[in-house]
């Protein structure tokens, strides 16, 4: 009986990884921070997601979709990290939010908005972050969340309505 290696395939070289995935790491980090609001946890997520992406890179035939595909893996790892959140809460205590100097009023407003974002479901929060924070077009967002563009748009509108119930969609999308 053949023994299966722990790491099944190493299809691309270090140069390939550096060329293809490394440039996306800052985007992945921003996405993970936006999803988790916890920078150290976000770094962990990016590392794990990068490893997963590197191992599966040979299965991605259309490299034009690389960014959406990779961010999809990051988003999935964020969801997994959220499930282990109680560990983070116990070990990390307060996030690094308070280290940023700002006026008290603005700081409170931003904290409220972050709280509202965290109260959104994972997929709703993901489309909001991808659209507003990473400036991704809806067609790419659809690829990340694994839905149609229409479904992604509907999800975005619904999430905006939850964040700002009184705000018109046209104004919110500016």
């Amino acid at each position: 009986m053949a023994i299966r290696p722990v790491i099944a395939v190493k299809p691309v070289s270090e140069q390939s990884f550096t060329d293809l995935l490394a440039p996306l790491v800052p985007h992945a980090y921003r996405l993970a921070c936006a999803m988790l609001h916890d920078a150290p946890a976000a770094e962990d997520v990016v590392q794990e997601a990068s490893l997963i992406a590197w191992r599966k890179l040979n299965k991605l035939h259309d490299h034009s979709k690389l960014r959406a595909w990779f961010l999809g893996i990051v988003a999935n790892e964020c969801r997994n990290a959220k499930r282990r959140r109680w560990v983070s809460l116990v070990n990390l205590g307060l996030p690094s939010v308070l280290s940023v100097p700002s006026s008290e009023e603005n700081s409170v407003k931003r904290a409220d908005l972050r709280r509202a974002l965290l109260q959104l479901g994972h997929d709703d929060r993901l489309v909001v972050v991808l659209y507003f924070y990473l400036d991704m077009p809806l067609i790419d967002i659809a690829m990340v969340v694994g839905a149609s563009a229409d479904a992604a748009r509907a999800r975005l509108y619904r999430a905006i309505h939850r964040l700002r119930p009184g705000l018109a969609i046209e104004e919110a999308l500016r």
Binding site: V25, P26, Y29, R30, C33, A34, H37, D38, A39, A42, E43, V46, P95, S96, V97, S99, V100, S102, N106, S107, K109, R110, A111, L113, R114, L117, V128, V129, F132, Y133, I160, L163, R164, L167, E171, A172, R174
Partner: peptide, 19 residues
């Protein structure tokens, strides 16, 4: 809303130059 969201998330996204 875009600017608000960016500012709010930037608060919890410290630079990670070596990442």
């Amino acid at each position: 809303l875009r600017a608000e969201i960016r500012a709010a998330i930037d608060d919890v996204t410290p630079p990670a130059p070596a990442l």
